[in-house]
């Protein structure tokens, strides 16, 4: 692949815009939050973040999803952690989501509307939650 210019990037965006517009009327109703504290980074959260972005694009969910980063959720022992907030699904914090599991998470939770078993950690540690 030759070095892309900003003009080419803009053109690529425009070429995808039509299919995006179709989805954007529904609004951005899915939020994915990746824990990016020192613990998360050490466990590979960067690869997880990247994997999630790629998987969302692959499964046509990129247009309706906001991907955010946050600090440590207090679950350092099960990093990388990912919180998923989606309509008609419970809010779930998943743990041990390494880069290779990113696509499975997207498929299970957002395409098949089921939970990714053995990775559910429910909510942040007590010292993170505001009393």
């Amino acid at each position: 692949m030759a070095k892309m210019t900003l003009e080419q990037l803009r053109a690529l965006r425009d070429s995808k815009k039509q299919e995006l517009d179709k989805r954007e009327v529904e609004g951005k109703d899915i939020q994915i939050i990746v824990g990016m504290g020192t613990c998360g980074i050490a466990a590979g959260a960067k690869q997880t973040f990247d994997g999630i972005v790629a998987a969302l694009e692959k499964h046509n969910l990129a247009g309706r999803t906001v991907v955010r980063q946050t600090g440590c959720m207090g679950l350092c022992y099960v990093e990388p952690t990912v919180e998923v907030i989606a309509p008609d699904m419970p809010n779930v914090i998943y743990g041990k989501i390494t880069g290779d599991l990113a696509e499975e998470l997207v498929v299970k939770h957002l395409v098949e509307h089921t939970l990714l078993e053995n990775h559910i950690y429910d909510k942040p540690a007590v010292d993170i939650v505001k009393k």
């Binding site: 900003l6 990037l9 995808k16 994915i32 990247d50 972005v53 694009e57 990129a62």
Partner: peptide, 24 residues
């Protein structure tokens, strides 16, 4: 050029752009 970088679509476009820069 790529749109809102908080969205997966914007980030995905930027990813392609950066990968092409990195390959030189």
């Amino acid at each position: 050029a790529a749109g809102d970088l908080a969205t997966a679509s914007g980030l995905s476009l930027v990813r392609q752009f950066l990968a092409s820069q990195e390959e030189g």
